[in-house]
Nucleic acid binder design. Structure first.
Length: 854
RNA sequence: GGGCGGCUAGCUCAGCUGGAAGAGCGCCAGCUUGACAUGCUGGAGGUCGGGGGUUCGAAACCCUCGCCGCCCACCA
């Protein structure tokens, strides 16, 4: 490859550089993990995106984080498996396809099961390909030879095995219970899939007569459910209703007798303090019903229509039934009053339909044993959370864990491996039996239910590696190391992976859980396609390049809980790529085809700027490394950015241009040393521009992707040089400020006199960077104060008194504050000695400066 | 109803264990300085959400109030 810079365009062009490198990495097989490598293993199973469509900002952010860690871990000597995949996302994908059908004026029922399945298959193919392409575009160094899909034959086998294993442990059972029923999807969903939205409804107060006289008034927002009431409940300590307990209330419109029971769940202060109990249509009522052995009446069909045979409301949709019930109550004098009422109503997370709690026969998974082991693992500190606070989110949820409704009544998903013969015998088996093991009957039917999509993703960290087979991959790569995801799926996904990992593999699936921030739209709303607030990562990549997007992602991912998207920050990292690109050019030009300069030893460095910049490299090496190790990626990218832009380019390059032009070997060596290290350290964040530049550095260069991470450079740390050079920068900044603010001051030239002894090298550097002469005695003229010296500009006959006055005011203000502190006897008595000394020195400095202003 | 996070320059955000208010973008002024105008130099701009407290000293620690956002929760 050419080492010349003639083919380096003035501006860095990500679009021209990026695609080529991905192909080269891939064909060099750099992403493929070797299970028999002697290196330590580092494994990450990428959270499989739902196969519902394009990748969004959250995915881009997550991919950037995963990939930076993958690259860092390779460079630090690990055999890295970064395993990609995607998720069939049963209910979500079914909804996407149903919406498509709806646009075509069709329903899945019209289409039929077979055609629907074919459609789903086609969807998998096209969207799966899209997802893979987008991950490549993001530069994700994933092991494509191990790509997994939750609907692959092998994965399905893992899922079936897990189901059977749970069943054999006696943890899976089928029972009718109250569930969250989605009338649109015609399926049960879990509590975690219910989203609560505020509704403005009406609270109806209804009179229930008491048998033998009296009445009780009850408040409800869902009067239609009263048709399925089986009791009235009051708080045991409520004196108002004590006399009614044990009697019967008469259900209006129906006439059924309802026992009046007492239960602690009833709030005395809400409504009238009396509750109608509808065990078939309210989770709390269901529990009360269980405690009191109440009848359960199923008052609604699965499609949301009333199921009250013999009553005029039978067959009506719930809302129509409500109107009619209210109308009739009013007509018959049972309605006491109505008042507006705001409350939360459950909606289906995927289709937004209002959830109807109702009784349904479902498959349940007992969680106690797994929950307890997960708690033990947490106790033992086996999973570290970043930020730590999210561990509590997880633990709180575990503590309140109930049995998991794993069955779904969908068309799309893993079919439950439960089979029934014609004689009603049940068989639970990984493979479909050809005949009933009990009676030999060969007419076998599979249970129609499918599994909650989270059931299969719960197995991700080991099912992807071949479980239940004892594969080489499983032995080599389990447990994995890190899982990075959004906080909203801590309970849905992370917790369940931990539980199943411990259960089936005997160990937690990963040691670190990293929860990244949520990217909001710039106005603070949620980024979502339906709101039109989404930002397409591909557009950003087109405009700014993948590297810029990734560097931005690293800079925000762990910095706070939420981040409002700010495109100018992505643009800022594009400029950073450009800066790095251009900063390298004078160095490459200087070296040309010449010999590769040796890395300088600290003792061989003479010039202050060289000692300083190498000391800075050493610090930055530590900061970037530490940032990654501690999952504080913003610290890493900030350190890299500041080093390249504000230290290497702004100061060192400016100070060293002449030497580079002259072919000075030390300058070349220092420059290459800086670039070599910086490029390697920035590679995980900006893989493309760094790979391109690396290939252009002198000498034989393999991929930076498999270069070694920069070793600790502490022997280059030179505290003295840093202090001295900071002094120098400070004085240069003061000089530049005068040049711009003092009328008539020249852009270069003038003379400074310093009040302290400085070595010749330092003086030389100051003179060069400040564009001034450094002399022992100032020529006649108006002196301007520097913190430790004075400057005179020949062209300035008299300094504008306003400039001096303004400066003096500034200094005086500072001095007053410091002096006030020093004059406080308490401060002198109680502050640490060092702080007092600092303040005194500062006061001294300020006073001197003010004096010199004359 | 419980819990968590945020409120710092016009905007988006840094400021970790309390000792001189920061960056990027935007704005103003000046620069075709042979790496970069995706640039360089300078500048304006903040009583760190309000109120208490702890401390010699608080943007940082404690209490409290107020918004904004998230998570969990069986009050009809």
């Amino acid at each position: 490859m050419s080492k010349t810079i003639s083919d380096m365009p003035t501006a860095y062009d990500a679009g021209a550089i990026e695609p080529g490198w991905y192909a080269r990495w891939e064909s060099a097989n750099l992403f493929t993990a070797n299970p028999s490598s002697p290196k330590p293993k580092f494994t990450m199973c990428f959270p499989p995106p739902n196969i519902t469509g394009e990748l969004h900002m959250g995915h881009a952010l997550q991919t950037a984080i995963y990939d930076l860690i993958a690259r860092y871990k390779r460079m630090t000597g690990n055999e890295v498996l970064f395993l990609p995949g995607y998720d069939h996302a049963a209910i979500a994908t079914q909804n996407v396809i149903e919406k498509q059908l709806a646009r075509e004026g069709k329903t899945k029922e019209e289409l039929g099961r077979e055609a629907f399945d074919a459609r789903v298959e086609a969807w998998y193919k096209s969207v799966g390909a899209t997802i893979i392409n987008q991950l490549r575009l993001l530069g994700a160094s994933m092991d494509w030879s191990r790509l997994r899909f939750t609907m692959d034959e092998r994965y399905v086998h893992s899922v079936m095995t897990a189901f059977v294993a749970f069943y054999d442990r006696g943890w899976i059972y089928r029972a009718p219970r109250i569930v969250n029923w989605c009338p649109h999807d015609q399926s049960a969903i879990s509590d975690l899939e219910v989203k609560w939205q505020e509704h403005h409804d009406t609270l109806y107060y209804i009179r229930y007569p008491i048998e033998g006289g009296g009445e009780v008034v009850i408040a409800t927002v869902r009067p239609e459910t009263m048709l399925a009431d089986t009791a009235v409940a009051v708080n045991p300590s409520d004196p108002r209703y004590r006399s009614m307990v044990g009697k019967n209330a008469i259900l209006p419109l129906v006439g059924r007798k309802l026992p009046v029971v007492v239960d602690d769940a009833v709030e005395k202060d809400f409504g009238t303090g009396a509750l109608k109990v509808t065990p078939g249509h309210d989770p709390m009522d269901y529990d009360i019903g269980q405690r009191h052995g109440l009848d359960v009446i199923n008052g609604m069909h699965l499609d949301g229509r009333m199921n009250v045979p013999g009553l005029p409301y039978d067959g009506l949709p719930a809302l129509e039934a409500r109107e009619k019930v209210v109308h009739d109550l009013k007509a018959q004098g049972y309605l006491v009053k109505e008042e507006p009422y705001t409350h939360e109503v459950g909606h289906c997370d995927r289709c937004d339909a209002i959830i109807e709690p109702l009784i349904s026969d479902q498959w349940w998974l007992r969680m106690e044993k797994m929950r307890d082991k997960a708690l033990d693992a947490s106790e033992a500190g086996k999973v570290r959370w970043h930020p730590e606070r999210y561990e509590r989110t997880y633990l709180d949820w575990l503590h309140g864990l109930r049995d998991w409704n794993i069955g779904r009544q969908l068309w799309l998903g893993h079919r439950v491996p439960v089979y029934y013969c014609k004689n009603g015998h049940r068989t639970v088996a990984v493979e479909r039996p050809t005949e009933c093991p009990e009676c030999g009957n060969r007419e076998i039917q599979q249970d129609p239910d499918v599994l909650d999509t989270w059931f299969s993703s719960a197995l991700w960290p080991f099912a992807t590696l071949g479980w239940p087979e004892e594969t080489e991959d499983l032995r080599a790569f389990y447990p994995t190391d890190m899982n990075c995801t959004a906080r909203e799926i801590i309970n849905l996904w992370v917790s369940r992976m931990i539980m199943t990992g411990i259960e089936f593999m005997g160990d937690v699936p990963f040691s670190d859980v990293v929860i990244h921030c949520q990217v909001q739209a710039s106005d603070g709303r949620r980024m979502s396609k339906s709101l039109g607030t989404g930002v397409d990562p591909r557009e950003l990549i087109t405009k700014y390049g993948t590297d810029a997007l990734r560097a931005w992602a690293a800079s925000v991912a762990m910095s706070s809980q939420d981040v409002r998207f700010d495109e100018t920050r992505v643009e800022g990292y594009r400029r950073f790529c450009n800066k790095l690109w251009n900063g390298a050019k004078p160095v490459l030009r200087s070296i040309g085809d010449g010999p590769v300069p040796n890395v300088p030893e600290p003792d061989d460095l003479e010039l202050i700027e060289d000692r300083w910049i190498l000391s800075r490299v050493a610090s930055v090496q530590r900061e970037i490394t530490q940032g990654i190790e501690e999952f504080a990626f913003q610290d890493s990218i900030n350190a890299g950015y500041g080093f390249i832009w504000n230290e290497f380019c702004d100061w060192w390059l400016e100070a060293s241009k002449d030497r580079l032009r002259a072919g000075d070997e030390t300058a070349q060596a220092v420059a290459i040393f800086c670039l070599d290290n910086a490029i390697r350290m920035l590679h995980p964040f900006m893989p493309f521009v760094t790979e391109e530049l690396w290939s252009r550095l002198p000498g034989e260069r393999d991929f930076v992707m498999r270069a070694a991470w920069p070793e600790d450079l502490h022997h280059y740390v030179d505290g003295q040089a840093e202090v001295e050079f900071e002094r120098l920068m400070d004085i240069v900044n003061q000089i530049r400020s005068y040049r711009k603010t003092v009328p008539g001051a020249p852009a270069k030239g003038g003379a400074v006199k310093l009040f302290s002894e400085n070595d010749a090298d330092w003086t030389r550097a100051l003179s060069m960077l400040g564009q001034v002469a450094v002399i022992d005695d100032l020529p006649p003229g108006k002196e301007l104060a520097l913190t430790e010296g004075s400057i005179v500009f020949p062209a300035v006959a008299a300094v504008d008194p306003a400039v001096t006055a303004k400066k003096r005011t500034e200094l005086q203000k500072d001095l007053d504050r410091v002096q006030a502190k020093l004059d406080n006897p308490e401060f002198r008595a109680k502050a640490p000695e060092q702080v007092i000394a600092e303040q005194e020195a500062r006061a001294e400095e300020l006073r001197a400066s003010i004096d010199r202003l004359g």
